[in-house]
Protein backbone atom coordinates (compact mmCIF):
# COMPACT_ATOMS: atom_id res chain seq x y z
CA UNK A 1 0.00 0.00 0.00
CA UNK A 2 1.29 3.46 -0.88
CA UNK A 3 0.89 6.26 1.57
CA UNK A 4 -2.20 8.35 0.89
CA UNK A 5 -4.07 11.26 2.36
CA UNK A 6 -7.61 10.93 3.58
CA UNK A 7 -10.62 13.15 4.03
CA UNK A 8 -14.21 12.55 4.97
CA UNK A 9 -17.00 14.49 3.30
CA UNK A 10 -20.63 14.80 4.30
CA UNK A 11 -22.33 15.48 0.97
CA UNK A 12 -22.02 13.98 -2.48
CA UNK A 13 -21.36 17.43 -3.92
CA UNK A 14 -18.44 17.91 -1.52
CA UNK A 15 -17.14 14.55 -2.61
CA UNK A 16 -17.27 15.57 -6.25
CA UNK A 17 -15.53 18.85 -5.44
CA UNK A 18 -12.86 17.13 -3.43
CA UNK A 19 -12.21 14.71 -6.26
CA UNK A 20 -11.97 17.58 -8.70
CA UNK A 21 -9.48 19.34 -6.48
CA UNK A 22 -7.18 16.37 -5.96
CA UNK A 23 -6.28 14.46 -9.09
CA UNK A 24 -5.55 10.79 -8.44
CA UNK A 25 -8.07 10.57 -5.65
CA UNK A 26 -10.59 7.79 -5.13
CA UNK A 27 -13.88 7.56 -3.33
CA UNK A 28 -14.02 4.98 -0.58
CA UNK A 29 -17.15 3.61 1.03
CA UNK A 30 -17.18 0.03 2.35
CA UNK A 31 -13.67 -0.55 1.05
CA UNK A 32 -14.30 -4.25 0.49
CA UNK A 33 -12.63 -4.15 -2.91
CA UNK A 34 -10.54 -0.97 -2.95
CA UNK A 35 -8.52 -1.76 0.17
CA UNK A 36 -7.53 -5.19 -1.14
CA UNK A 37 -6.45 -3.61 -4.40
CA UNK A 38 -4.48 -0.92 -2.58
CA UNK A 39 -2.61 -3.48 -0.50
CA UNK A 40 -1.53 -5.16 -3.69
CA UNK A 41 -0.75 -1.77 -5.28
CA UNK A 42 -3.14 -2.43 -8.11
CA UNK A 43 -4.88 0.76 -7.06
CA UNK A 44 -2.54 3.50 -5.89
CA UNK A 45 -4.68 6.52 -5.01
CA UNK A 46 -2.81 9.48 -3.54
CA UNK A 47 -5.95 10.63 -1.76
CA UNK A 48 -9.05 8.90 -0.41
CA UNK A 49 -12.38 10.64 -0.07
CA UNK A 50 -14.56 8.83 2.41
CA UNK A 51 -18.16 9.07 1.26
CA UNK A 52 -19.63 6.68 3.81
CA UNK A 53 -21.11 9.56 5.85
CA UNK A 54 -22.81 11.38 2.98
CA UNK A 55 -26.26 10.39 4.16
CA UNK A 56 -26.97 8.50 0.97
CA UNK A 57 -28.05 5.46 2.92
CA UNK A 58 -31.82 5.57 2.52
CA UNK A 59 -34.22 3.48 0.51
CA UNK A 60 -37.22 5.59 -0.49
CA UNK A 61 -40.38 5.07 -2.48
CA UNK A 62 -40.28 7.23 -5.55
CA UNK A 63 -43.26 9.27 -6.77
CA UNK A 64 -43.58 7.02 -9.83
CA UNK A 65 -43.99 3.97 -7.58
CA UNK A 66 -40.41 2.90 -8.05
CA UNK A 67 -37.58 2.84 -5.56
CA UNK A 68 -34.68 5.18 -4.95
CA UNK A 69 -31.74 3.35 -3.39
CA UNK A 70 -29.07 5.55 -1.83
CA UNK A 71 -25.57 4.87 -3.07
CA UNK A 72 -24.39 4.10 0.47
CA UNK A 73 -27.12 1.57 1.29
CA UNK A 74 -25.25 -1.59 2.16
CA UNK A 75 -25.97 -4.88 0.44
CA UNK A 76 -27.43 -6.48 3.56
CA UNK A 77 -29.92 -3.67 4.15
CA UNK A 78 -30.91 -3.61 0.50
CA UNK A 79 -31.46 -7.36 0.30
CA UNK A 80 -33.55 -7.38 3.45
CA UNK A 81 -35.68 -4.31 2.70
CA UNK A 82 -39.41 -5.14 2.70
CA UNK A 83 -40.21 -3.58 -0.65
CA UNK A 84 -37.18 -5.12 -2.30
CA UNK A 85 -38.14 -8.53 -0.99
CA UNK A 86 -41.76 -8.11 -2.05
CA UNK A 87 -41.48 -6.40 -5.42
CA UNK A 88 -37.89 -6.87 -6.59
CA UNK A 89 -37.16 -10.46 -5.61
CA UNK A 90 -34.58 -10.74 -8.35
CA UNK A 91 -32.49 -8.04 -6.70
CA UNK A 92 -32.75 -9.55 -3.22
CA UNK A 93 -31.80 -12.98 -4.53
CA UNK A 94 -28.86 -11.69 -6.55
CA UNK A 95 -27.51 -9.77 -3.56
CA UNK A 96 -27.80 -12.73 -1.22
CA UNK A 97 -26.00 -14.99 -3.67
CA UNK A 98 -22.94 -12.77 -3.52
CA UNK A 99 -19.99 -12.59 -1.14
CA UNK A 100 -20.55 -13.35 2.54
CA UNK A 101 -22.60 -11.86 5.34
CA UNK A 102 -19.68 -9.81 6.61
CA UNK A 103 -18.86 -8.41 3.18
CA UNK A 104 -22.50 -7.59 2.43
CA UNK A 105 -22.65 -5.64 5.68
CA UNK A 106 -19.85 -3.37 4.46
CA UNK A 107 -20.34 -3.33 0.71
CA UNK A 108 -22.39 -0.41 -0.64
CA UNK A 109 -24.71 -0.15 -3.62
CA UNK A 110 -22.48 2.12 -5.70
CA UNK A 111 -19.35 0.30 -4.60
CA UNK A 112 -20.88 -2.96 -5.74
CA UNK A 113 -21.63 -1.45 -9.16
CA UNK A 114 -18.10 -0.14 -9.53
CA UNK A 115 -16.15 -3.11 -8.14
CA UNK A 116 -13.35 -4.30 -10.36
CA UNK A 117 -12.77 -7.59 -12.11
CA UNK A 118 -11.55 -10.72 -10.35
CA UNK A 119 -9.39 -11.84 -13.25
CA UNK A 120 -6.40 -13.50 -11.55
CA UNK A 121 -3.94 -11.83 -13.92
CA UNK A 122 -5.32 -8.41 -12.99
CA UNK A 123 -4.62 -9.30 -9.36
CA UNK A 124 -0.97 -10.31 -9.87
CA UNK A 125 1.23 -7.30 -10.58
CA UNK A 126 3.91 -9.52 -12.13
CA UNK A 127 1.58 -10.51 -14.95
CA UNK A 128 0.69 -8.68 -18.13
CA UNK A 129 -2.65 -6.92 -17.88
CA UNK A 130 -3.97 -4.14 -20.11
CA UNK A 131 -6.55 -3.19 -17.54
CA UNK A 132 -3.94 -2.65 -14.84
CA UNK A 133 -1.16 -1.31 -17.05
CA UNK A 134 -2.61 -0.08 -20.35
CA UNK A 135 -0.74 -1.42 -23.33
CA UNK A 136 1.22 -4.05 -21.41
CA UNK A 137 -0.61 -7.03 -22.91
CA UNK A 138 -3.00 -9.69 -21.62
CA UNK A 139 -1.73 -12.92 -20.10
CA UNK A 140 -5.23 -14.21 -19.50
CA UNK A 141 -6.27 -14.81 -23.09
CA UNK A 142 -3.70 -17.56 -23.62
CA UNK A 143 -3.70 -18.46 -19.94
CA UNK A 144 -6.25 -19.60 -17.38
CA UNK A 145 -9.53 -18.27 -18.72
CA UNK A 146 -12.17 -20.71 -17.45
CA UNK A 147 -13.90 -17.98 -15.43
CA UNK A 148 -13.43 -15.16 -17.95
CA UNK A 149 -15.51 -13.43 -20.59
CA UNK A 150 -16.98 -15.03 -23.69
CA UNK A 151 -18.62 -12.02 -25.25
CA UNK A 152 -18.02 -8.31 -25.61
CA UNK A 153 -14.37 -9.04 -24.99
CA UNK A 154 -11.46 -7.93 -27.14
CA UNK A 155 -7.94 -8.95 -28.01
CA UNK A 156 -6.89 -6.65 -25.19
CA UNK A 157 -9.01 -7.97 -22.34
CA UNK A 158 -11.35 -10.82 -21.42
CA UNK A 159 -12.12 -9.77 -17.87
CA UNK A 160 -15.64 -10.10 -16.48
CA UNK A 161 -17.57 -7.84 -14.17
CA UNK A 162 -18.08 -9.83 -10.97
CA UNK A 163 -21.24 -8.23 -9.55
CA UNK A 164 -24.42 -10.22 -9.02
CA UNK A 165 -26.38 -7.16 -7.98
CA UNK A 166 -25.63 -5.37 -11.25
CA UNK A 167 -27.07 -8.28 -13.24
CA UNK A 168 -30.36 -7.97 -11.39
CA UNK A 169 -30.39 -4.20 -11.79
CA UNK A 170 -29.74 -4.54 -15.51
CA UNK A 171 -32.68 -6.91 -15.93
CA UNK A 172 -34.81 -4.56 -13.82
CA UNK A 173 -33.87 -1.53 -16.00
CA UNK A 174 -32.31 0.43 -13.17
CA UNK A 175 -31.02 3.96 -13.63
CA UNK A 176 -27.99 5.43 -11.91
CA UNK A 177 -28.19 9.01 -10.62
CA UNK A 178 -25.03 11.08 -10.30
CA UNK A 179 -23.82 14.51 -9.38
CA UNK A 180 -20.71 16.28 -10.60
CA UNK A 181 -18.46 19.04 -9.35
CA UNK A 182 -20.74 21.70 -10.80
CA UNK A 183 -23.69 20.23 -8.95
CA UNK A 184 -25.21 18.92 -12.16
CA UNK A 185 -27.32 15.81 -11.82
CA UNK A 186 -27.38 13.14 -14.46
CA UNK A 187 -29.43 9.98 -14.95
CA UNK A 188 -27.57 7.11 -16.61
CA UNK A 189 -29.54 4.01 -17.58
CA UNK A 190 -27.54 1.07 -16.23
CA UNK A 191 -27.28 -0.19 -19.81
CA UNK A 192 -25.08 2.82 -20.50
CA UNK A 193 -23.01 2.74 -17.33
CA UNK A 194 -20.41 0.16 -18.33
CA UNK A 195 -17.91 0.21 -21.16
CA UNK A 196 -16.73 -2.85 -23.04
CA UNK A 197 -12.96 -3.25 -23.07
CA UNK A 198 -12.14 -2.59 -26.73
CA UNK A 199 -8.59 -1.29 -26.83
CA UNK A 200 -8.99 0.59 -23.53
CA UNK A 201 -9.91 -2.00 -20.92
CA UNK A 202 -8.72 0.30 -18.13
CA UNK A 203 -11.77 2.48 -18.87
CA UNK A 204 -14.68 0.66 -17.27
CA UNK A 205 -17.59 3.06 -17.08
CA UNK A 206 -19.03 6.27 -18.45
CA UNK A 207 -18.72 8.32 -15.27
CA UNK A 208 -16.76 11.53 -15.77
CA UNK A 209 -13.85 12.41 -13.49
CA UNK A 210 -15.25 13.53 -10.17
CA UNK A 211 -18.77 12.43 -11.02
CA UNK A 212 -20.24 10.44 -8.14
CA UNK A 213 -23.17 8.06 -7.97
CA UNK A 214 -25.80 9.26 -5.52
CA UNK A 215 -28.51 6.66 -5.98
CA UNK A 216 -29.97 3.93 -8.10
CA UNK A 217 -33.55 4.17 -9.32
CA UNK A 218 -35.67 1.11 -9.86
CA UNK A 219 -38.79 1.51 -12.05
CA UNK A 220 -42.16 0.60 -10.56
CA UNK A 221 -42.55 -3.10 -9.81
CA UNK A 222 -42.90 -5.23 -12.92
CA UNK A 223 -44.18 -8.45 -11.39
CA UNK A 224 -43.42 -11.78 -13.06
CA UNK A 225 -41.47 -14.64 -11.58
CA UNK A 226 -38.11 -13.27 -10.60
CA UNK A 227 -35.29 -15.79 -10.57
CA UNK A 228 -31.57 -15.38 -10.03
CA UNK A 229 -29.73 -18.54 -10.96
CA UNK A 230 -26.05 -18.39 -10.13
CA UNK A 231 -23.82 -21.24 -11.23
CA UNK A 232 -20.66 -21.89 -9.29
CA UNK A 233 -18.30 -24.66 -8.28
CA UNK A 234 -18.98 -24.39 -4.59
CA UNK A 235 -22.27 -23.75 -2.91
CA UNK A 236 -21.48 -20.35 -1.44
CA UNK A 237 -18.89 -17.58 -1.37
CA UNK A 238 -17.79 -17.88 -4.97
CA UNK A 239 -18.04 -15.64 -7.99
CA UNK A 240 -20.45 -16.75 -10.68
CA UNK A 241 -19.22 -19.01 -13.41
CA UNK A 242 -22.26 -17.65 -15.17
CA UNK A 243 -25.50 -16.32 -13.78
CA UNK A 244 -28.94 -15.59 -15.16
CA UNK A 245 -31.18 -12.93 -13.72
CA UNK A 246 -34.66 -13.25 -15.16
CA UNK A 247 -38.21 -12.00 -14.90
CA UNK A 248 -40.60 -14.41 -16.59
CA UNK A 249 -44.31 -13.84 -17.14
CA UNK A 250 -47.04 -16.49 -17.35
CA UNK A 251 -47.21 -16.12 -21.15
CA UNK A 252 -43.54 -17.06 -21.40
CA UNK A 253 -42.30 -13.57 -22.19
CA UNK A 254 -39.79 -11.88 -19.97
CA UNK A 255 -36.49 -10.10 -19.47
CA UNK A 256 -33.11 -11.45 -18.64
CA UNK A 257 -29.49 -10.49 -18.09
CA UNK A 258 -26.38 -12.59 -17.73
CA UNK A 259 -23.49 -12.36 -15.29
CA UNK A 260 -20.05 -13.88 -15.58
CA UNK A 261 -19.88 -13.67 -19.37
CA UNK A 262 -18.73 -10.11 -20.12
CA UNK A 263 -17.23 -6.93 -18.74
CA UNK A 264 -20.76 -5.82 -17.90
CA UNK A 265 -24.10 -7.42 -17.12
CA UNK A 266 -25.03 -8.83 -20.52
CA UNK A 267 -28.47 -8.14 -21.87
CA UNK A 268 -29.78 -8.09 -25.44
CA UNK A 269 -33.39 -6.94 -25.39
CA UNK A 270 -34.10 -8.40 -28.84
CA UNK A 271 -33.22 -11.85 -27.55
CA UNK A 272 -35.97 -11.65 -24.96
CA UNK A 273 -38.65 -11.70 -27.66
CA UNK A 274 -37.50 -15.24 -28.34
CA UNK A 275 -38.09 -16.43 -24.77
CA UNK A 276 -41.39 -18.16 -25.58
CA UNK A 277 -39.53 -20.11 -28.28
CA UNK A 278 -37.13 -21.65 -25.80
CA UNK A 279 -33.64 -21.38 -24.43
CA UNK A 280 -31.79 -22.38 -27.58
CA UNK A 281 -32.93 -19.49 -29.73
CA UNK A 282 -32.63 -17.01 -26.88
CA UNK A 283 -29.06 -18.07 -26.24
CA UNK A 284 -28.13 -17.95 -29.90
CA UNK A 285 -29.29 -14.36 -30.09
CA UNK A 286 -27.92 -13.36 -26.69
CA UNK A 287 -24.50 -14.75 -27.39
CA UNK A 288 -24.29 -14.03 -31.11
CA UNK A 289 -20.73 -13.00 -31.80
CA UNK A 290 -19.38 -14.70 -28.71
CA UNK A 291 -15.65 -15.29 -28.80
CA UNK A 292 -14.90 -17.80 -26.07
CA UNK A 293 -11.50 -19.31 -25.38
CA UNK A 294 -11.02 -23.06 -25.44
CA UNK A 295 -11.26 -23.05 -21.66
CA UNK A 296 -14.51 -21.14 -21.36
CA UNK A 297 -16.41 -22.35 -24.38
CA UNK A 298 -18.52 -24.44 -22.01
CA UNK A 299 -20.16 -21.24 -20.79
CA UNK A 300 -22.23 -21.02 -23.96
CA UNK A 301 -23.85 -24.38 -23.27
CA UNK A 302 -24.11 -23.51 -19.60
CA UNK A 303 -25.95 -20.28 -20.40
CA UNK A 304 -28.43 -22.14 -22.57
CA UNK A 305 -29.04 -24.80 -19.95
CA UNK A 306 -29.41 -22.27 -17.17
CA UNK A 307 -31.90 -20.22 -19.19
CA UNK A 308 -33.79 -23.47 -19.81
CA UNK A 309 -33.73 -24.20 -16.10
CA UNK A 310 -35.07 -20.72 -15.37
CA UNK A 311 -37.86 -21.12 -17.95
CA UNK A 312 -38.83 -24.43 -16.39
CA UNK A 313 -38.74 -23.03 -12.85
CA UNK A 314 -41.00 -20.17 -13.93
CA UNK A 315 -43.62 -22.66 -15.06
CA UNK A 316 -43.90 -24.25 -11.63
Amino acid sequence: MKSFTYQRVTTALDAAKAADKTPGSKFIAGGTNLLDLMKLQIEKPAHLIDISKTGLNKIELNTDGGLRIGAMVNNTDLASHNVVRRDYGLLARALLSGASGQLRNKATTSGNLLQRTRCPYFYDTNQLCNKRVPGSGCAAIAGFSRQLAIIGSSDHCIATHPSDMAVAMRALDATVETVNVRGEHRKIPIADLYLLPGSTPHLENTLQPGEIITSVLLPPPIGGKQIYQKIRDRASYAFATISVGAIIYPDGSGKLALGGVAAKPWRIEQAEALLPKGSKLVTERLLAGARPTGENQYKIMLVERTIESVIQQAKR
Binding site: R118, P120, Y121, Y123, D124, Q127, A139, A142, G143, F144, R146, D233, R234, A235, S236, Y237, A238, F239
Partner: peptide, 28 residues
Protein backbone atom coordinates in the same frame (compact mmCIF):
# COMPACT_ATOMS: atom_id res chain seq x y z
CA UNK B 1 -12.93 -27.84 -6.67
CA UNK B 2 -9.34 -27.80 -5.50
CA UNK B 3 -6.84 -27.21 -8.26
CA UNK B 4 -3.75 -25.08 -8.47
CA UNK B 5 -4.08 -24.08 -12.09
CA UNK B 6 -0.78 -24.16 -13.94
CA UNK B 7 -0.21 -21.45 -16.52
CA UNK B 8 2.34 -23.20 -18.69
CA UNK B 9 3.19 -19.98 -20.55
CA UNK B 10 4.27 -18.12 -17.43
CA UNK B 11 5.10 -21.15 -15.28
CA UNK B 12 3.15 -20.57 -12.11
CA UNK B 13 0.02 -21.42 -10.16
CA UNK B 14 -2.40 -18.74 -11.30
CA UNK B 15 -5.04 -18.93 -8.60
CA UNK B 16 -2.85 -17.98 -5.68
CA UNK B 17 -5.35 -16.60 -3.22
CA UNK B 18 -8.39 -17.95 -1.39
CA UNK B 19 -10.80 -16.38 -3.88
CA UNK B 20 -9.18 -18.27 -6.73
CA UNK B 21 -8.22 -21.47 -4.92
CA UNK B 22 -11.57 -22.67 -3.69
CA UNK B 23 -11.91 -25.01 -0.74
CA UNK B 24 -15.26 -26.22 0.59
CA UNK B 25 -17.37 -23.84 2.66
CA UNK B 26 -20.03 -24.83 5.18
CA UNK B 27 -22.73 -24.84 2.54
CA UNK B 28 -20.86 -27.58 0.68
Amino acid sequence: MEELVVDTNVGFFVNHDLAGYEVPVHAD
